[in-house]
Design a protein around this nucleic acid. Structure first.
Lengths: 143, 143
DNA sequence: GCTTGACCTGGAGTGGGCTCCAGGCGCGAG
DNA sequence: CTCGCGCCTGGAGCCCACTCCAGGTCAAGC
């Protein structure tokens, strides 16, 4: 059982990115990364360097990428956690994961439709103000 | 200066809707209606019946409708208040109102684009799970 | 006259999602 | 050896947008 040693040379970063680098890559803050981890949103506890600092692997970053997309489309944290739980539980949960994602998809599509409709109404209002302002400018020009 | 009297018969509601009716019509709660009013989101304090109960006019409801659309598209309350302030300030503020709405429009369009992009990625994930689950079901059928 | 129900007020409480902080540690540079 | 830096932890704090009281008023029905 050889421990953490891959006999490479000098300053090769032994494994993965620091939390600051992960933050930059994911667009999250270091605080948020720690918070997500503590809250069970990651698939497993992020690895640590010998000094106890977190080291993010590419797999970690890919997962965080997906989770960011879920969050950015409005999935509540508790649902993301449920999804993570399912993935963590391994095979046999695929149907549940699929259903969770499909349910989310429906919610997002509904939201998109709703927002688009509201935006249409707001656009009308904008059109009205454009007329008003144009007329005012014409008025000023005439003066 | 005749006061509140439009000599109609029996149970004609003297003016406007009760807060409960307004809530039903707008899809907000009575608490939220009071909260919005207290927070300066309405154009003017809602009228009162002789007993001090709020009476919502159609104009009130129209304004609340617009404000709900702004909120439903993610405009923060402080911006809605700024917009209400501009409307309240009367003519001369049209250009500012227009710019505020246009700025909001840009934000909403950006959001829509972003969410749509994320949804595309999530759809891919869904596709993958559909395959996995279909294959599992085929497996079960074979057994 | 008493009860009931809708509404009133000011203010406290809640839930979600971070964000910030104090105090501490390990490591490379000077 | 001593800095300074990046990171660590647990826990407090914050912002937003409501939501929920408690205690009170008023009008109508019995």
């Amino acid at each position: 059982m050889a421990a953490v040693s891959t006999a490479t040379a000098t300053t090769a970063p032994l494994a993965g990115l620091s939390i600051a680098e992960a933050a930059e890559r994911t667009g999250l803050t270091t605080d948020t990364l720690r918070y997500y981890e503590k809250d069970g949103l990651l698939l497993r506890a992020v690895g640590r360097s010998s000094s106890g600092h977190r080291r993010y692997t590419e797999a970690d970053l890919r997962w965080i990428g997906l989770l960011s997309r879920l969050r950015a489309t409005g999935m509540p944290i508790r649902d993301v956690r449920r999804y993570a739980d399912l993935v963590r539980a391994g095979s046999g949960t695929e149907a549940d994961r699929l259903e969770l994602l499909r349910a989310h998809r429906r919610v997002v599509l509904d939201q998109l439709a709703e927002v688009t409709e509201h935006l249409g109404a707001i656009d009308q209002k904008i059109g009205i103000y454009e007329d008003v302002v144009a007329r005012q400018e014409a008025e000023v020009a005439r003066a």
